[in-house]
Design a protein around this nucleic acid. Structure first.
Length: 930
RNA sequence: AGACCCGUAGCUCAGUUUUGGUUAGAGCGUCGCAUUGACAUUGCGAAGGUCGAUGGUUCGAGUCCAUUCGGGUCUACCA
């Protein structure tokens, strides 16, 4: 037996492989199903702390229910992550001096598939390192053939139902990635920007009106000026025209209540092609341009917005030729100079506002008029709202429902087309008259619609979230109806973060309700977001990211620095990050093992919104693993040293006590897991194992075995010890799968049980209800031993002496006889000579009043009576104070009348306890006094 | 502008809803003591909190209500 501490690296990967090879994670056919679908990570991504956290939780759930006898499916898979992946591959191409358009669509797609091959398995192997008991046999990727078929089917059905439509609208345009984005992919940043005031000359006068703008370049696309209809300052202008600076064309002045007379100058320039509000206003007023480039208002149907940007946001169209080809910011500069020259620029001021940025590219977005595909989200939202309102789906914690409703009630149609190459190409073919038809292939479309002429396929691909919104059922083979779907769908629970409630959770509910006529999951457990120990979001640019695998295996400072600084978007932060990392981890990070990391996650999983990951805590849980490991080593020693034989044994009070504690904890954990309180469950088990099992039970067993005088008794003590340890391993297994599996198999070998297979599949076999009265008795004995320890700590001269103990006869007779029966063990642990029950108290002694009885340690010549009196008097003062407080309470008529009888009774019991304690203390003091 | 979350021991957090009711808990850290048989990744013991503030409801408030201060998040945004 070696003495080195527990080393998880010896066992973890070996065990996972054994589990996986044995096919233990694959579902069976028991109709009592429990299923989870993993939120599919980006196929080319790597594991971060959030993944680690959420997967730890999912694995605990699935292992717990698998052990409880449910038929479990934990669906695994990865997402193609359109924009993110396309960006990475494009950057790699750029580094080689090539561009996407150089090589063309097909070659590019091939590049991405190659990249997936290189980096694609990283995250799935990392999931294995976490011990996640995923069903690898049903792994899916969102671009698998089968999955693609589901995506196309969904699109075609929605199109045919009129719930997907094409429209020329303003979208959030990312000029760097050259694609549209949905509202959710826009990050609004608060900034100090500039605002300019510009004069527009009124037609056929020498008068001007002034408008304010933060984007002067858009004036090239202005189609009107607008004022509030009730604004007296400008009512005479309504219906007149103004001349557009630098452009030599006229635009109408219209009245619209959208304009806030209090804000700015009260006159607004209207650019329907480049601003969302202006677009709506332009539509209301039917703004359009004639062949002479003059703008007019009209009926709503006349509305034709003009656009002056192309897809790289360079100036085109009706803008004066001079500006053509200029980038938006270059054009802004030139326009401001020109306005200044013409004395039309009134002012330039600082201004607090927000600008929209792309969440991936981090570039300022531009509203741009393009053809896009939309999902009619308003229609799909209704059943999805009802599903949550009716309780068919429950959010945990429940207040996330509010967030959900707030968004769903104001939902906008969802732009699902992306001008990318990586993803599901939209299954639309245009005929020669540009009419769109949906189908699985060109052939399919031709046959269905009897088309003869040339067909052109839509170039765009679908938003990644469109395909992932089908995740729970598309992974199970939909649109085919099969047994898997009927057994495992709806899934039981979704575990995810609040950051994707809108992106994913809400859209899954909408789509699943629509296609399956049922919900995708019955409960949504929204976890907190993992932040660093200072409450900062973990991000590459802050340089505070942690890789869960580094916490498992350890990492040197050099490697950690390299990881945190490679491929930085803002290299100027590099020095700061290096310094900060060196301060935090001067020696790098130690290896803690998966079980310790997982346990840390559980202990932090309280219902709040943010979870600050304090690296200090993981150390404590590594020690916990070591503690368990050594508890096993103790048992191992007993088995070997006493030639343990597996046979029928008899009960003992210590094992009964332990079994009873385990049973209670197991019951509580069941509740905690149902309520997703992994923090409470883990804390309770920790306390059970460390404080009850190791600190007390093992110590009792140790002495009991030592003092046992017959082999049968020894054997039976060991047998009960083994059984209780098994129960603990079972209870811990969903939280710490590796160490528990390893120890259970070692224990099975040692104790010569027939090999009973893996804990993974075995369930909770050893935990049983036990003798509760024994539990109470032993709790009392433990109280006595603890009190003795306090006395020793307070009296340094007796800290190591063997002492005699007298217990007053006030202690009930049941406990007295149990103490007598186990005198040897108790004396052994508490280092006592003999234990007596008596009301005869020797003159020189230390006394301690307990719960209705007292313990006395005769100490002739060893104590200073004066010191002892002082100590007792302090204790007396405390008791008297308690009595005063309770008396005051009971003297309060209001309290006695209004408080529930139970509460009043409790107080009365309390005071009588305190009174008797007081009497005992007074007697003790009197005796010491000369 | 609206919605939401957080504030409890030196630090990181439970406890606050359904149900207001003893002396408010844990881990880490700190202090004192312990040393060869499971474990120093250890054991035993101790100290440490007017629960952000104010007011209210109540016999009774960390918990309920109102106001307020500080920190944070999301949604929507006006030129």
């Amino acid at each position: 037996m070696d003495k080195k501490p527990y080393d998880p690296s010896d066992i973890e990967q070996k065990l996972y492989k054994a589990w996986e090879d044995s096919g233990l994670f694959a579902p069976g056919d028991n109709p009592e199903a429990y299923s989870l679908a993993i939120p599919p990570p980006n196929v080319t991504g790597t594991l971060h702390m959030g993944h680690g956290f959420q997967n730890a939780i999912m694995d605990c759930l699935i292992r717990y229910y698998r052990m409880s006898g449910k038929n479990t499916l934990w669906q695994v898979g990865t997402d193609h992550a359109g924009i993110a992946t396309e960006m990475v591959v494009e950057r790699r191409l750029n580094a080689e001096g090539k561009t996407k358009s150089d090589i063309g669509r097909e070659a590019f797609e091939e590049e991405v598939w190659n990249w997936k091959k290189v980096s694609g398995n990283k995250i799935t192997s990392q999931l294995r390192r976490l011990g996640s008991s995923l069903d690898w046999s049903s792994e899916r990727f969102t671009l698998d053939e089968e999955y693609q078929h589901a995506v196309l089917s969904a699109f075609i059905q929605l199109f045919e139902e009129g719930l997907i439509y094409q429209g020329k609208r303003l979208v959030n345009w990312d000029p760097v990635l050259e694609t549209s984005l949905s509202d959710l992919e826009v990050v609004n940043k608060d900034l100090t920007i500039k605002i300019w005031e510009i004069k527009y000359q009124l037609e056929a006068t020498d008068k001007f009106v002034t408008v304010a703008t933060t984007r002067p370049e858009t004036l090239l696309g202005d189609m009107a000026l607008a004022v509030n209809p009730s604004d007296k300052r400008f009512s005479h202008l309504i219906g007149k025209k103004a001349s557009l600076p630098l452009c030599n064309r006229l635009i109408p002045i219209v009245a619209d209540s959208y304009v806030d007379p209090e804000f700015g100058t009260g006159v607004v320039k209207i650019t329907p092609g480049h601003d969302f509000n202006d677009y709506d206003l332009g539509k209301r007023h039917g703004l359009h341009m004639d062949e002479d480039f003059q703008c007019h208002s009209g009926a709503e149907d006349d509305f034709v917005p003009i656009s002056i940007f192309n897809k790289t946001v360079a100036i085109i169209g009706v803008a004066p030729k001079k500006f053509h080809g200029m980038d938006r910011f270059e054009a802004r500069k030139v326009i401001l100079e020109d306005l200044k020259k013409e004395k039309l620029l009134m002012s330039e001021k600082e201004y607090e506002s927000t600008l929209p940025y792309g969440d991936r590219s981090d570039q300022i977005l531009e509203p741009l008029l393009t053809d896009q595909w939309y999902v009619d989200a308003k229609t799909l939202a209704k059943p999805a709202i009802d599903a949550v309102k009716s309780g068919e789906i429950q959010f945990v914690p429940a207040n996330w429902e509010k967030t959900y409703f707030q968004w769903m009630d104001n939902i906008q149609d969802w732009c699902i087309s992306r001008q990318l190459w990586w993803g599901h190409r939209i299954p639309i073919w245009y005929d020669e008259s540009n009419k769109p038809h949906a189908g699985f292939s060109e052939k399919d479309v031709r046959e269905k619609h009897n088309l003869k002429g040339k067909l052109r396929q839509e170039e765009d691909v679908l938003d990644t979230w469109f395909s992932s919104s089908l995740w729970t059922f598309a992974t199970m083979g939909w649109p085919e109806k099969n047994e898997k779907l009927s057994l495992f769908h709806p899934t039981t629970t979704l575990v995810t973060g609040f950051d994707i409630i809108f992106f994913w959770v809400a859209r899954m509910i909408m789509m699943t309700k629509h296609f399956m006529k049922e919900v995708p999951f019955k409960e949504v457990y929204i976890t907190g977001l993992i932040k660093d120990e200072n409450g900062q979001k973990m991000s590459k640019s802050k340089g505070n990211i942690l890789d869960p695998i580094d916490l498992i295996d350890g990492v040197s400072l050099e490697e950690l620095l390299a990881k945190r600084t490679e491929g930085m978007m803002q290299p100027q932060l590099k020095e700061k990050i290096i310094q900060q990392t060196k301060n935090q981890f001067p020696e790098g990070i130690e290896s803690y093992g998966t079980d310790a990391l997982r346990y840390t996650f559980y202990s932090l999983a309280s219902p709040g919104r943010d979870i600050n990951f304090d690296i200090g805590r993981i150390k404590g849980y590594r020690n916990f693993c070591n503690k368990i490991w050594n508890a096993f080593r103790f048992i191992e020693m007993q088995i070997t040293n006493h030639s343990y034989q597996s046979s029928e044994g008899s009960k003992d009070i210590f094992s009964d006590w332990m079994a009873s504690k385990i049973y209670q904890t197991a019951k509580n954990c069941q509740t905690h897991i149902k309520q997703y309180r992994f923090d409470l469950a883990s804390a309770e088990i920790y306390e059970l194992v460390w404080s009850n099992f190791c600190d007390w039970y093992i110590e009792f067993c140790k002495v009991a075995i030592q003092k046992s005088d017959n082999a049968g008794q020894t054997n039976s003590l060991i047998k009960n010890l083994i059984t209780n340890f098994y129960s603990i391993l079972e209870l811990l297994h969903p939280f710490m799968p590796f160490i528990t599996e390893e120890l259970s198999s070692k224990l099975a070998d040692l104790s010569k049980l027939e090999k009973s297979g893996y804990l993974v599949e075995n369930g909770f076999n050893h935990t049983k209800a036990s003798n509760q009265s024994n539990e109470i008795q032993l709790d009392k004995i433990i109280n006595i031993i603890s009190a003795l320890r306090v006395i020793r700590a307070e009296n340094q001269n007796i800290k190591n002496e063997t002492l005699n103990l007298i217990i007053s006869n006030d202690l009930n007779s049941d406990t007295q006889s149990i103490i007598s029966e186990n005198e040897g063990v108790i004396s052994g642990i508490a280092k006592l000579g003999k234990i007596e029950f008596s009301d005869q108290v020797p003159a020189e002694s230390i006394e301690k009043t307990m719960d209705g009885y007292k313990i006395i340690i005769p100490l002739e010549g060893l104590i200073d009576p004066e010191e002892e009196i002082a100590r007792l008097q302090k204790e007396l003062a405390d008791v008297e104070n308690d009595i005063k407080i309770i008396n005051a309470k009971l003297a309060n008529k209001q309290f006695v009348d209004k408080a529930p009888a139970e509460v009043v009774k409790k107080e009365k019991v309390k005071i009588s306890d305190a009174e008797s304690k007081k009497t005992m203390l007074e007697k003790s003091i009197a005796k010491l006094q000369p």
